[in-house]
Design a protein around this nucleic acid. Sequence first.
RNA 1: GCCGGGGUGGCGAAAUGGCAGACGCGGCGGACUUAAAAUCCGCUUCCCGCAAGGGAGUGCGGGUUCAAAUCCCGCCCCCGGCACCA
Length: 826
Amino acid sequence: MSMTTPGRFAELRYNPRELDRKWQERWERDGIYRVRDDDPRPKWYELTMYPYPSGDAHIGHWYAMSPSDAHARFRRMQGYNVLHPMGFDAFGLPAENAAIRRGIHPFTWTMSNIQNMKRQLNSMGAIYDWEREVNTCLPEYYRWNQWFFLQFYKAGLAYRAKAPVNWCPTDQTVLAREQVIDGKCERCDTPVIQRDLEQWFFRITKYADELLDFSGLLDWPERIKLLQTNWIGRSEGVEISFDISGLGVQEQELRTFTTRIDTIYGVTFVVLAPEHPLVAKITSPAQRDLVTQYVNATLHETEIERQSTDKEKTGVFTGAYAVNRLNGDRVPIFIADYVLRSYGTGAVMGVPAHDERDFAFARKYKLPIPVVIAPPGWSGGELAEAYLGDGTQVNSGPFNGLTSAQGKQAIAEHIEQHGWGKRTVSYRMRDWLISRQRYWGTPIPMVYCVTCGIVPVREEDLPVILPEDAEFKPTGESPLKLHQGFFNTTCPQCGRAARRETDTMDTFVDSSWYFLRYPSPRYDQGPFDPAAMRSWNPVDQYTGGAEHAVMHLLYARFFIKALRDLGLVEFGEPFLRLYNQGIILGEDHEKMSKSRGNVVGPDTYVETVGADVFRLFLMFLGPWDQGGPWSTTGINGMARWVNRVWDIAQRDASALGKSGDPAAARELTRAMHKTIRKVVQDMDKFHFNTALAALMEFTNKLYDTWEAKRVGWAAWDQAVDTLLVLLAPCAPHITEELWERRGRPYSIHNQPLPAWDAELAADDMITLVVQVNGKLRDRLTVPADIGEEDAKRLALASPQVQAQLDGKKVRQLVYVPGRLVNVVAG
RNA sequence: GCCGGGGUGGCGAAAUGGCAGACGCGGCGGACUUAAAAUCCGCUUCCCGCAAGGGAGUGCGGGUUCAAAUCCCGCCCCCGGCACCA
C-alpha cells in the first residue's frame, strides 16, 4: 500500500511516544475508564459506528473516532456515567476474498486485523472499555442473529420468496446492493444483470409508515430523515383494474396503480412489465415471437441499460386489448422495460397527455394523446409536451368541470363504489433481502426437508456453527455448499436426511442490534441481559457517516421496532440523537482508496507528533460534519500551540507574587469565564474547531498576562488549571501529565467541567459601533450599561460622524443596545 | 431530471440580520543567534495614498431593510444522494 508520509514537524517539548505510553498504561492499570452499570450518576450512552476490521486503520477511522471520544469524555466530565464502547463489524466479503486470493482463513485474517486495529485504536487514547468489546464473527455473537431470525420467522417477519437479484456474470455470484456501483460489479466492473432466485427477506415494508414517523427521535439531521423518507417513497394513489374478461384467460381483470386517477379518461394504452405473469397468457399468436424476443432482450439487459432515463422508450404490442371501465374504451396492451415488475402492480395505465414517459411512448407508437386535464388558458389544441400540473377536468364524462384535485376525490369514490379498484398506498422501498451466497457470515438457521419442507433449526440447537474447515475456491460457489458435513443434516421435525440452508446473512443484520449487546457482551442466556440492556439503551448519541442513511440506520430502526413488537425491548427507536461527521478526502481531493494510492495512515503521525497533536489537528481542520481534503500543512501549528500550553502550564506562578492588580485579575477571570462558556457550548454541539480556537485565544491571553506581570498567582493558577481541564477531552495525555506536574490530584479526567458565571463573563466596557447610513465610521469605547440617550449623543458628537454629515440632515437614529448606533442622514 | 449540502483572503476557516475575515497555516518584517533552525513580538482581503484617510469586497444579477455573507426572487458552478417508482 502506498501511503503519504509526513514531512518534518516542529519539535515538541516532550517525548510524545513516552508520554502517550505512560498514561495509556496507567489508565489501563487503574481501570479509570471501566464503566459500571450501577453508577448512580445519570447515564449517557454515546456510540460511534463500529469499524470493519480491514487490517489497517486509516485517517477516516481517526476522524470518526477521536472527536467522538472527545465528546464522550466531555459528557463524562459534565457528570454523566458514560458508556462509549467499541467493537468490530467482523463478518464480510474482504475476509473471504483474502482467503481466496492468499489462502488465509477468514477467521485468522479477521482476528489478526482486529488485533492490529485494537493496537491502533489504543494509541488514540480513547476511553473504550475493552471488557465490553463486541465481535460479530464469534459464535457467541452470531448465534443471536440466528435466534432473532427464528423469532422473526415465527412472527412472519422473515420469509422466503423468489426475487430478482443482482448477478455478476464474471464472478458468477450474486451481489449485495451495496456492491453494485453504477450498475457495475464493484470488484470487476462487469455490468450486473438481474436473475430470479429464492431468497430470504425481512418484512421491513410492514413498518414503512412507522419508519416515516421520526417523532420518537430527539435530534437527527434533517438530511438523514429526508433521505429515509425519499427512500421509503410513500405514494398515495388508486389501484384501478381494467377489464380483460374478453381475452379468454382465467384472469378477468388487469390491475394497475396510479397516483393520477384524475387522468383515467385519458388512458390510450396499458403497459405491463416484461416479467409480468399475464404477459405469456394474453399475447396473441401473431405477436408471440416479437413479445418473446423483447422479454428475452430485457432479461439480458444490464441494470444500467434498463435503468437509463435517457434511453428511448421501447415496447411491444401484445395483440391484446383491455377495457377502461369508466368510458368503455378498448385500449391496446403493451409491454415495455420502463415498467418495473416490483413496483405497484407491475402494470401502468398510459396517459400520454399527462405523463412524460407515456407521452414519449405514445409519440413513438402513434397512439392518441387526448387532453383530460386542461392547463390554465388551454386553447383546446394539441399539447407539445405532457402537462403534469393541476387543471380542470375535460373529456372526463360526468367529472368535467371539476378541478383535478376534486376529480381525484370524486373518481376514486366512483371507482370504489363500483368495485373497480380502491385507494391504496405504494412504497418505493422493498423488503430487505438478507440472503448472501457467501461463507463469511451468519448461517441462516433453516433446513430443507423433502417431507416437511422448510423447517427452522430448533432454538436449543443454536448456534449453527460456521465450519472452520471450509475450502475456498474462486468458483463463486459458497464453500458451505461444498462442505458435506455442514450441508447434510437431519430434519429437526421428522429426523430424516435433509440439507441445510447454505446462504448466510447480510452483515447489516449484525449491526442492527450490536448496540444492545455492549452492556452485556458475554451474556449467554439471550442476546443481551435485559436489565443491563435497559439500563443503557436506547443510545443517547450516535455518531457516524451519513453514507449509512438508508442502509444501516434504516435497518436498525426497523429491527428495534420489530423487537419491540416481539416484547424484547420497550423502546421503538435505537438512536435518540444522531450526528454525522464528514468524509476525509485524500490530498488530491478524491475519496481515499487503495487503488488511488492516496490513503493516509495514522501510525506515522502518532509516532512523530503523538496522539494529542494528531487528535487536535483532526478536530481543528474545520467543522466536523463537513470533512474535507487531508493536508499536513497546519499540523505544525497544532504542535506549536501544544508547546505553548506545555510551557505556560509549567511556569512558576510564585514569580507573580501574592496580590496583583485587581483590575488585571478581573480581566483574566472575565476571559476565563468567556472561554468556559464558548468551549462548553461548542463541544456540546460537536463544534470542535471553534472550541479549540477559543482555547488558543485564551492561551494567547495567558501569554500576554504573564508578560504584563500584573495578576497574582491565585488568579493565574485558576486560569491555567481551567485551560487544562477544558482541553482534557481533546488532548487527554498532555493535560494529564501537566495536571500531575502541577501537583493536582489524579486524574484530570475525573475532574468536573467548570461552570461559567455570566456576570463574571460580562464586559464592563463595550465597543459601540457608529455607522452613518449603514457604513462604519467610528468605534467608541463606552460603559456596557450605557443608555440609549447617551449612546446617541456620543455617536453624533463623533468627529468622524460630523465629517460625514457635512450639512446633511439627520433623519433617523437607529440604536441597537450594546452594539451600535446608525445615523441615517440625507 | 429531482432532492440535499456548499461557494467568504494565497490556504483551512470564523461570523446565521448589526465591526466581514476570529483562530490557525503560509508569507513578510523585527528581536535573539557567529549563522541557521526553533522561539518570541509585529504586520498580512484588494485598490488609491507618505500618511491621516478614502473606495471596493462574502459565486453572478436583482430585491427587502436604517443595516444583508446571513432573509426573498432568478441564475451559474462544485460535492453528495436518488434516478423511468406510474
